Amino acid sequence: MKLKFFWAIILSLYIFSTLFNSTNARANDQLQVNLSITGNEKPDGNYSSLSSISVHVKADSNLMEEIIQNTPDYGPVLESWLKLGNKPPITGPKLIYRLNFYSPDSRSLYSTDIVFFARKYSVVSDNGQKRPVTEVVDETNIVIPVQTEVNGTYKLIISQGNKPIFVKNIVLEKDNTEKQAMTEKTTPTNEKINKPEKINNFSDFIPILFTIFGILLIVLSFFIIVLAIKKFPRKPEAKCPFCHKTLFDKDDTFCCYCGALLKPEKKQNNHENENA
């Protein structure tokens, strides 16, 4: 009798494990994944920049029904206990997935677990009435903040154990149009620098008027200086009749260069005055 009871327990455990394993095996084909990527998408499907990625994962309803059927009842729970935010533990089988988001250099940028499960329990109100409750968690929404502009291929992988179930490659590369736009932005600025600006207000004329007035003042002062130099009295020039060099003073008697007698009559008059 004991032997039959032992084999019955082993058989029930085997059936439960096979059901759970088949549930996990068929979960590979019954997982719905929807992506919503926030960024600048290019016409070829790649991106020039990324800001965030929203991943919505939902399990198949038939798969969750099997999980609910294999989930035992936790037992009665007071309604006041639930109002405090307490929850009964997960008492049945659950589906656990792993989400990883990798950078182009295979570095993990984001990682989290995705767990699908069911809870069964009875809520007991203050008057003693029981209400059966089945709480099902069969979908989740995950937001991955990216905030990167490094070029390369980013990978989003959802796996169960070591087996990948969902793989998404997101290619980030700079668009050439952005570089062209940058050059187009710089060229108009250069043209603005080279082109003269239009004058619309009278206040814009003031610097020009001051510049013209300064130039006229400089020209007038230069002209006055030239006239003053021309009107300045100069000593009459005299040249030596023998060496033809310019003398310092036309009243000199002898040449300061060759020593020749310049005015013999002046020397003769000086002698006559001395004799008298």
Rank of each mutant, 00 (worst) to 15 (best):
F6A: 14
D113I: 06
I37V: 04
K266M: 11
L99N: 01
A228K: 09
F6K: 14
E149D: 14
I114M: 00
F213K: 14
N273Y: 15
D60P: 03
L31R: 06
L99M: 03
F242P: 02
P236Q: 14
E272V: 04
T38D: 08
P207K: 01
V226N: 06
S48A: 10
P72A: 00
V55A: 08
I193D: 09
P233G: 01
E197P: 06
V146D: 00
T112I: 03
V219H: 07
I10G: 09
T112A: 08
Y154S: 00
P241G: 00
Q268W: 14
N162F: 10
V150L: 08
I165V: 10
K130C: 04
R98Q: 10
K87W: 11
V115M: 08
Y97T: 02
K231V: 01
P43A: 06
A260E: 13
P196V: 02
D60F: 07
Q180M: 15
D60S: 01
I193Y: 07
N21S: 11
S80D: 10
T211M: 12
T112F: 00
Y121E: 07
D73N: 15
T23S: 11
T187Q: 12
M1C: 11
C243N: 07
V146L: 08
I229C: 09
V171L: 09
G259V: 02
A27W: 03
F20W: 15
L209P: 05
T189M: 12
R98A: 12
S12V: 11
W7L: 11
V115F: 06
L3M: 12
A118Q: 02
I215P: 05
S54M: 12
F242W: 12
K130R: 14
L50Y: 02
K245L: 14
F16E: 09
A276F: 11
P264D: 00
H271C: 02
Y110F: 13
P241Y: 04
P207N: 06
K83A: 07
Y154R: 02
V150S: 00
D138F: 01
T153N: 13
K245T: 10
R131N: 03
P233Q: 08
L95P: 00
N62L: 13
E274H: 14
V33K: 03
E197R: 13
N62W: 12
L156H: 04
N200E: 15
P164I: 01
L13Y: 04
N270I: 14
D175A: 07
Y47M: 03
Y110H: 01
N100I: 10
I68Y: 04
T253C: 07
V33N: 00
M182Q: 15
S36N: 12
D44R: 00
K120S: 02
T187G: 07
Y97P: 01
I170W: 02
V124W: 00
I229T: 09
E184M: 15
F16G: 05
N169A: 10
K192N: 08
N62Y: 13
I224C: 10
V136R: 08
S122V: 09
I158R: 02
F213N: 11
C240L: 06
N201R: 15
D249C: 01
P164N: 03
V133I: 02
L95C: 03
K174D: 05
I68C: 06
F254N: 00
G39P: 01
E65V: 14
E178R: 05
K239C: 12
K2R: 12
A238D: 08
G39W: 03
F20I: 14
H244P: 05
I96E: 08
T148I: 08
L262R: 11
I229A: 11
P104R: 04
